[in-house]
């Protein structure tokens, strides 16, 4: 049963991410990426990391994808994306890096056979409870730093994208908007 679920979601995730990477249409890429994020949360549920799966759905498909969707309103996304070829040296270098990553990922669990759990799972305690116990004791300072980082990111987003936010088209009268467009047309 677990094997069927694993292979099903593995194929689905791979196909979705391939669409994201290879399509020339920005909206298809966004939709496929959102679907792939949801399928990835299935792996977290399979692995018993329930809290992480819920966070994956909430943060990635809820917040990040919505942010991208709203951000895409600023860009011209109906047009096909044209990709120009990069230089072969860069492709060669990055392919070598990818191969090296593969080797490192497969050798890392093999060379560390005598690995022991630093914060072992406790019997009879749910995943969310366990995560809370570890997060608020051993990882409290990184947690607070992450909170400050998110605050900084929020302020940075407002400062960067929020220029001329007081200039609201919905609160202006029709004549004002028309005058402004006429002025722009003259310039």
């Amino acid at each position: 049963m677990e094997a069927i679920a694993f292979y099903l979601f593995a194929v689905l995730t791979t196909v979705m991410f391939l669409i994201t990477v290879l399509t020339n249409h920005a909206l298809y890429a966004l939709s496929a990426l959102a679907a792939g994020m949801i399928f990835i949360s299935a792996f977290f549920f399979l692995l018993g990391a329930d809290f992480l799966g819920a966070i994956q759905i909430i943060v990635y498909t809820g917040a990040v994808m919505a942010l991208y969707a709203f951000g895409m309103m600023f860009f011209d996304t109906t047009r096909d994306v044209v990709e120009s070829r990069t230089s072969p040296q860069i492709i060669f270098g990055l392919s070598g890096l990818a191969a090296l990553t593969v080797v490192a990922m497969f050798t890392a669990p093999i060379i560390s056979e005598n690995i022991t759990a630093l914060y072992p799972a406790i019997d009879g305690v749910g995943n969310s409870q366990m995560v809370g116990m570890v997060l608020f004791t051993k990882f409290l300072i990184p947690f607070e730093v992450a909170a400050v980082m998110l605050l900084v990111a929020m302020i940075a987003g407002i400062v960067l994208a929020g220029k001329k936010m007081d200039h609201s088209l919905t609160l202006m009268k029709e004549e004002e908007i028309e005058r402004e467009t006429n002025e722009k047309a003259q310039v």
Partner: peptide, 20 residues
Amino acid sequence: QMFAFFIIAVAASEVAVGLG
């Protein structure tokens, strides 16, 4: 799992700043 949490937090703030 803790590292995965912090990666998600980093990704969220990266998106906010990058999109801005």
